[in-house]
Design a protein around this nucleic acid. Structure first.
Length: 355
DNA sequence: AGCTACACCTGATAGC
DNA sequence: TGCTATCAGGTGTAGC
């Protein structure tokens, strides 16, 4: 389920189960699901991105991941765009560090769902789902024993333990944790370590190049508009560029462009200042509606933490509707490839000239 | 520096 | 039936 609304549905679904839970065991069934995980002082076996993992490198990677996560106490999951991470309490016996020690950089369990990743919340005795690659056995003070199963058919997604570093702008790393903290303080409780950690202005080192997403309060609209209007590539390519704005994927790019009446091939340079602002508005609008409907699911592939599909596929105006009449002007929708991805649009009401 | 093409995977479906 | 080609919601990087 992998664009911003789908990832947020997963994050919110995981939050109550993970916050304050202890990882009692970790089971890596397929080390290829850890392709972003760098073993701490490994390096005995190379095997970075794109390189097929040797059996030795796979075992080393899995072993390091299991050791560093087992025993960890988890915080509230945080999300920026399509990246999600769960802060790991430093009190965890991760590396034999005693409670209260200030040594050791803060770290998090980082997750990306890729094209087909799922995070499934299951009871300890529940039967296997298909394509489970990594399994966490956790114990929660209230919800007791649970399993978090990371299932991923295509293996473009991944889990990793990553270092947390300060954000460039000093604002929180992403969304999540903040509402947890306010709920705690509203109850008069002292914020826990985990919630304080999650609202800290930290981000996994691997996600440092990912821009804030369109729903982030600290997103800089003017900066995005300027960047868009300086690019020769198509407006759709810029929308998909996670360094400019994150969270937008192929579905919501097509939907936002349809709503803004912008032709996907229009160069960024050709988008006027007003249209640039409107485009952000449309991205937020479609994200908000998709979120309210539980995200977009075309089949059983994309589901929430309970394995349930979202309903937003019924509300799509452009994506996957080639040949259908445009909901605004009845012109049959067309499809073309842009940057290797299929794009769906109305050639009549989505203008190549911006107003 | 900016841009394009491709690699990384499995599985469903269409056409022969 | 069984082959091949194409397509799928994403990202990182090599090479121009």
């Amino acid at each position: 389920m992998p664009e911003l609304p789908e990832v947020e549905v997963v994050r919110a679904g995981l939050a109550p189960a993970l916050t304050g839970a202890r990882v009692v065991a970790v089971e890596v069934r397929d080390p290829r699901a850890l392709k972003r995980h760098e073993p701490r002082d490994g390096s005995a076996f190379a095997g970075g991105h794109g390189v097929t993992l040797s059996p030795e490198a796979g075992r080393e990677r899995a072993g390091d991941f299991e050791r560093r996560l087992t025993g960890a106490v988890l915080g509230t999951p945080v999300r920026r765009g399509k990246f999600m991470w769960v802060p790991i309490d430093q009190a965890a016996p991760e590396s034999g560090i005693a409670i209260g020690t200030q040594f050791g950089a803060p770290s998090a369990l980082l997750a990306h769902l890729g094209m087909s990743g799922q995070m499934l919340l299951r009871s300890h005795e529940a039967p296997d789902d298909r394509h489970v690659r990594v399994r966490l056995w956790i114990e929660h003070p209230i919800h007791r024993e649970l399993r978090i199963d990371f299932a991923d058919q295509r293996l473009f997604g991944s889990l990793a333990i990553d270092e947390l570093i300060p954000t460039d702008d000093g604002a929180p790393g992403g969304w999540g944790g903040l509402e947890m903290l306010t709920a705690e303080t509203a109850r008069g409780a002292m914020p826990s370590f985990s919630s304080r950690e999650s609202v800290a202005s930290l981000i996994p080192a691997q996600a440092r190049h990912i821009a804030r997403d369109a729903l982030d309060p600290a997103f800089d609209d003017a900066r995005f508009a300027a960047a868009l209007r300086s690019r020769t590539v198509s407006v759709k390519t810029v929308l998909l560029d996670q360094r400019q704005v994150s969270g937008v994927g192929n579905i919501y790019a097509d939907e936002a462009l349809w709503r803004a009446r912008l032709h996907p091939e229009l160069p960024g340079l050709g988008v006027g200042p007003r249209k640039a602002r409107e485009l952000l508005l449309r991205v937020r609008e479609v994200f908000g509606q998709a979120l309210a409907e539980g995200g977009t699911s075309f089949d059983e592939q994309y589901v929430n933490v309970n394995g349930e599909a979202g309903y937003f596929a019924h509300s799509l105006h452009a994506y996957g509707r080639t040949g259908d009449p445009c909901d605004r002007c009845a012109e049959p929708l067309r499809r073309m490839m842009i940057g290797g991805r299929s794009s769906h649009f109305c050639a009549r009401c989505q203008r190549k000239r911006s107003s």
